Amino acid sequence: MAREQMAEQDPEVRPLDAIDRTILRLLQEDGRASIRSVAERVHVSRANAYSRINRLIEDGVIRGFTARVDHERAGQGASAYITLKIVQNSWRTVREQLITLPGVAHIALVSGDFDVLLLVHTADNRTLRELVLTRLQAIEDVLSSRTLLVFEETDLVVGDRAERAPRPPGPVP
C-alpha cells in the first residue's frame, strides 16, 4: 500500500522504452518467468533484465505478481459488481473501509451515475447478501448501492488476447 501511495505522489514518471514494454508483456503472460528467460526473449543480458525489472518495481509500474484464480473452483461461487453512491469528498475514508471487507477484489473511483465500482467474490449468494445488506450499508458515507450479479466471467491477460483475436469473416479452415 505504501508503495502505491508513493507512486501516486511521485510526479516523476520515467518513460518506458520498447524493451520495458516487452518485459511487461512477458511478465503479464507468465509472472513466474525467470530472469534468464526474459533476458533471452528481449535480447538483453540477465543483469540488464534484472535491473530493468527492479526499476519497474521501484517505479511502481509493476505493483506485484499474482496468480490467476478460478474463483468458482476456489470456493467463491458468487461474484458481483457493486456500484456505490457515496458522500462527496468521502472517497479516501470509504476506500479504507472497503479494503477491509472480505471478498473485495477490486475497488475503483469512477465517474458517471455512481461513484465507486467494486468487484467481489463470495462463497455463495447468502454471503453476498450479507456483504451488501449488512457490511456495505453499515458504512456511514455509503448513500446507496446496486448489485450486478455475474453469471459468467473471463479474465484476460496479454497472452489470452492474442489467442482469442477475432478471425476475419469467411469459411473456417
Rank of each mutant, 00 (worst) to 15 (best):
M1A: 11
M1K: 05
M1P: 12
A2W: 11
Q5R: 15
Q5W: 10
Q9Y: 11
P11W: 02
P11T: 08
E12H: 13
V13E: 15
A18V: 14
R21A: 13
L26W: 00
L26S: 05
L27E: 11
L27F: 08
R32I: 04
A33K: 07
S34H: 10
R41Y: 03
R41N: 05
V42L: 04
V42I: 02
A47K: 09
A49W: 01
R52W: 05
V61H: 08
R63K: 13
G64S: 13
V69L: 07
H71I: 08
E72P: 04
E72C: 06
R73C: 04
A74C: 02
G77E: 06
A80W: 02
L84H: 02
K85D: 14
I86R: 00
N89C: 09
N89F: 11
T93Y: 02
T93R: 01
T93M: 00
R95S: 07
Q97G: 05
G103L: 03
G103A: 06
V104P: 01
A105V: 11
A105H: 12
I107N: 03
G112V: 04
D115H: 04
D115E: 00
H121V: 03
T127L: 04
R129A: 09
L133M: 12
L136H: 03
Q137W: 03
D141R: 11
D141W: 05
D141G: 10
V142I: 12
V142H: 00
L143G: 11
S145K: 05
R146L: 09
L149Q: 09
L149I: 10
F151W: 08
F151G: 15
D155R: 12
A162H: 14
R167C: 06
G170N: 03
P173M: 04
